[in-house]
């Protein structure tokens, strides 16, 4: 199936205007891209963990979700709620109580806090039980909903309100949790990492694959946040592109344990270019903190080498 933008924008809009997300937020773009990859005739059940997306897309009595069922759950349990819905659906279908000719797909959205920290137990459980669901994490790298507190997905040396940069500490002192790798180790049939890159082909194709693969699948999406990261709202596409080009956020997918890097920059852009756009890394450009940038670069290079190696190894095994 070729990706033609003119046809894609004609598809059913399942997330409508009038939501209360900040200007320039990436999350609505991600949600639309994921839901657009559904076939138009199929139904969808969406469950959203408490996050920016949830609190600003269904403020009573308004809802922005259209052509799909929507369940708001607590912070912890987007994955377990959806597991229950999926199990009920299967049971009703088996006993013939539900006569529906079209397929129903189950999609959960969560922020990084609701996925990596608070919702992790429910997510891990759902993947272990093997429900036929897709979990999409839009990773904006901190608890943006409550005012930029650190989460375990916050990158190394980022300045947040609970990991402030100052004389004593240079921002967050710990490294981030590599959520995509953790989900690969759950033996999921399809795990991918994507971003809003170029004409959105990458996110569209990966969402389609994730939604129409049997079993629990996981998507980790890079979601820039102009408020929390401190960059201009219009730079959404630019900052996503830089994250991919510097290999800060590699685009790759893992299908049944086989790695595939979807984009390999011919020449890696130094991570400095990505960092200097954002206020949360401003302190790294002081003279005494310069060595921290090198440290970040080393971590990125190490991860990139690891991915290249995994791609080589897992593809060799196939032959």
């Amino acid at each position: 199936m070729a990706y033609i933008l003119k046809d894609i924008v004609n598809k059913k809009d399942r997330f409508v205007s009038g939501h209360r997300m900040c200007a320039g937020c990436a999350a609505p773009v991600i949600v639309r891209s994921v839901l657009r990859s559904l076939n138009d005739e199929d139904n969808a059940v969406v469950s959203v963990a408490t996050s920016c997306l949830e609190v600003s897309s269904c403020i009573y009595p308004y809802t922005s979700w259209d052509h799909c069922s929507f369940i708001h759950t607590a912070f912890e349990c987007a994955a377990s709620t959806l597991s229950g819905v999926e199990a009920t659906y299967n049971s009703l279908k088996k006993t013939g109580k539900l006569k529906n000719e079209h397929e129903t797909k189950f999609i959960a959205f969560g922020g990084d806090g609701g996925t990596v920290d608070i919702g992790f137990q429910a997510l891990s459980g759902a993947f272990e039980r093997g429900h036929n669901i897709t979990y999409v994490c839009y990773d904006n790298e901190a608890y943006m909903n409550t005012g930029t507190q650190r989460s375990s997905a916050t990158p190394h040396f980022a300045d947040t309100t609970t990991s402030p940069a100052g004389e004593k500490t240079p921002g967050k002192v710990q490294q981030r949790k590599d959520m995509t790798e953790i989900m690969v180790k759950h033996n999921s049939p399809y795990v991918a990492q994507t971003a809003l890159y170029g004409n959105l082909k990458d996110i569209h194709e990966k969402s389609h694959k994730a939604i129409y693969t049997d079993g629990p699948t996981y998507l980790n999406v890079f979601s820039p946040c102009p408020r929390g990261w401190g960059y201009n709202t219009e730079d959404l596409a630019k900052i996503s592109k830089l994250a991919v080009d510097t290999c800060f956020w590699p685009l790759y997918e893992v299908e049944n344990g086989v790695y595939k890097l979807n984009y390999k920059p011919i020449k890696k852009v130094p991570v400095e270019e990505f960092l200097k756009m954002q206020k949360r890394f401003k302190h790294l450009f002081k003279e005494e903190n310069r060595y921290l940038i090198e440290e970040i670069q080393k971590e990125i290079d190490k991860k990139w080498e690891y991915l290249l190696m995994m791609e080589k190894i897992t593809n060799n095994k196939e032959n």
Binding site: G18, Y62, T63, C68
Partner: peptide, 17 residues
């Protein structure tokens, strides 16, 4: 519960800009 879908179209956010 919200018994309709997509009704946030009634809530105009244009005044934010």
């Amino acid at each position: 519960t919200i018994l309709t879908s997509g009704n946030s179209k009634k809530f105009k956010t244009g005044s934010w800009k």
